[in-house]
Simulated assay, not measured.
Amino acid sequence: MARSSPHSCEDDIEIMIRTGVRDWRHVESDRYKWPQEAILVVQSNRLNEINHSKPKHINGRAQHVECAFLDEIESADQSLSLEDYFSKMRMRQQKTEYDLYINYSPCVDCADRIIEFINNHPLVIFNIHYAMTYKDGDGLRKLKYQEGITLSTMSDSNWKSVTTSLLDIHIQKMQKLQEEVRSKPGYESLNTALKYLDIERFPKWITMRKEADEVHDQILHDIFEEEEYFEEYWPEEYFEEYWPEEYFEEYWPEEYFEEYWPEEYFEEYWPEEYFEEYWPEEVSEDEDEVQDEILDDTLKLTPFEEYWLANGSGRSSFDLLYS
């Protein structure tokens, strides 16, 4: 059984691994601070799911993830049919062991709730693995000698187990979502994905998305019509009629260019030696020296600038240029 999670697999893994790690980067970004949310990964021979702390509960306070998990189990029992109820009762005659992987250790209130649940279900065993001690650890002190409960911090093997579970749960979730999306048409399939992944909760968002698509479809339609407009009002025949090739030959003859831009002009102002000096075909071995000379010429100052730099500030031209 894998319950839907409103987080991505990356989110869930990041919540687990960041809790308790003193990362100096938290000064620059909230991303590196310890998560304010608790996550609980549950493993057993009949259950494999992710639970998250609830933002608000009946009393207006956030509900811790342990209590949310236990409430879910008990409410599920009450909604069972008579046949399923007796089937579950028979299963309760056997011991059921749960591995609970949580980023913060239980608080005092959650510890009391866990003890109450264990007392009501003596064949249940909770193995609690946590990544960081919550506050002063008073919750752990309450649980440490309780029968049916074991406590441990996260270890090498625990990290492998919880990471594998997170991946399995999210893969199952995406496979289920894929089946539901494929069974529904168009925007309804998109709406199903958004609700399932808890990405967008605004009721009319799909309608807004559809309207935006229609607007941009109209823009694309207008872009294609521009070409049709041009072909309609500026056909190729128009240019052939009003701008024939003879027009250019008459008003822009080849002699015009030869008169105003003769070859001698380019030879005088752009001689071949100029290009050979500054843009040689092959780079010489002394290319660095050439570039240094060009740089020196570029940075060369006038006598007035040299005088001002020497007598006005006492700093060299190099210092002023690169300060």
Rank of each mutant, 00 (worst) to 15 (best):
A2R: 10
R3T: 00
C9T: 14
D12W: 08
D12M: 09
D12R: 11
R18L: 03
V21G: 02
R22F: 15
Y32Q: 06
I39A: 00
V41R: 01
V42S: 03
N51P: 04
N51H: 15
H52G: 13
H57L: 14
N59E: 05
Q63H: 13
Q63E: 09
C67K: 11
F69E: 02
A76Q: 10
L80R: 15
L82P: 00
L82T: 11
Y85R: 09
F86I: 09
Y98M: 03
I102D: 01
S105L: 02
V108R: 02
A111H: 05
F117H: 09
L123M: 13
V124Q: 05
V124L: 11
I125Y: 15
Y134H: 11
Y134D: 06
K135R: 14
G139V: 08
L140M: 00
L143Y: 04
K144D: 01
Q146K: 13
G148S: 03
L151E: 00
M154C: 01
T163M: 00
T164N: 05
D168F: 02
I171Y: 07
I171R: 03
Q172G: 03
Q172N: 03
L177G: 02
L177Y: 03
E180D: 12
R182Q: 03
E188A: 01
T192E: 11
L197K: 09
I199T: 00
I199K: 01
I206G: 02
T207G: 10
D217G: 14
L220K: 12
D222K: 05
F224P: 08
F224G: 09
E228N: 13
Y233F: 01
W234N: 14
E240R: 12
E241K: 15
Y242Q: 07
Y242D: 00
W243I: 04
P244H: 01
E249W: 05
E250I: 06
E250M: 10
Y251K: 04
W252M: 08
E255W: 04
F257L: 09
W261K: 06
W261R: 10
E263T: 10
E264A: 10
Y265D: 07
F275A: 07
Y278K: 01
V283K: 13
V283M: 10
D286V: 03
E293C: 14
I294Y: 06
K300V: 03
T302M: 01
E305R: 04
Y307N: 07
W308H: 11
G314F: 07
G314W: 02
S317H: 14
L320M: 11
